[in-house]
């Protein structure tokens, strides 16, 4: 499942997309995120359960700002969460 966390507002689209079929719940993205945007949650979508990465409730409505420091306007962009994810389960829409 591709879980889109984030929002669209007057200034643009801001979504972090987590592919829960790829995510193995290893927690590396949670550890490297300097701003505590990500967390590991119980899978509430399936009765089988399991764990998966998600954007915290606190950051869901402000990820444009929370993720801002990791997105320089010039120079190379290295997103710690995306780089840390071996399963390549995380995509940023902006």
């Amino acid at each position: 499942m591709k879980a889109h966390y984030g929002y669209k507002d007057g200034s643009g689209d801001y979504f972090i997309i987590i592919d829960t079929d790829k995510c193995n719940g290893c927690q590396k993205c949670v550890e490297v995120c300097p701003y505590g945007v990500l967390e590991i949650i119980e899978d509430e979508f399936d009765i089988e359960g399991g764990s998966m990465a998600a954007v915290t409730e606190e950051h869901r409505k402000k990820i444009k700002y929370s993720c801002g420091p990791c997105k320089p306007i010039t120079g190379e962009r290295k997103l710690p969460c995306v780089l840390a994810c071996e399963a390549k389960a995380i995509i940023h829409s902006w």
Partner: peptide
């Protein structure tokens, strides 16, 4: 009926 992809907009 299993979710493959979802997007929720609840900011406004």
């Amino acid at each position: 009926g299993k979710v493959m992809s979802f997007l929720m907009n609840d900011k406004c």
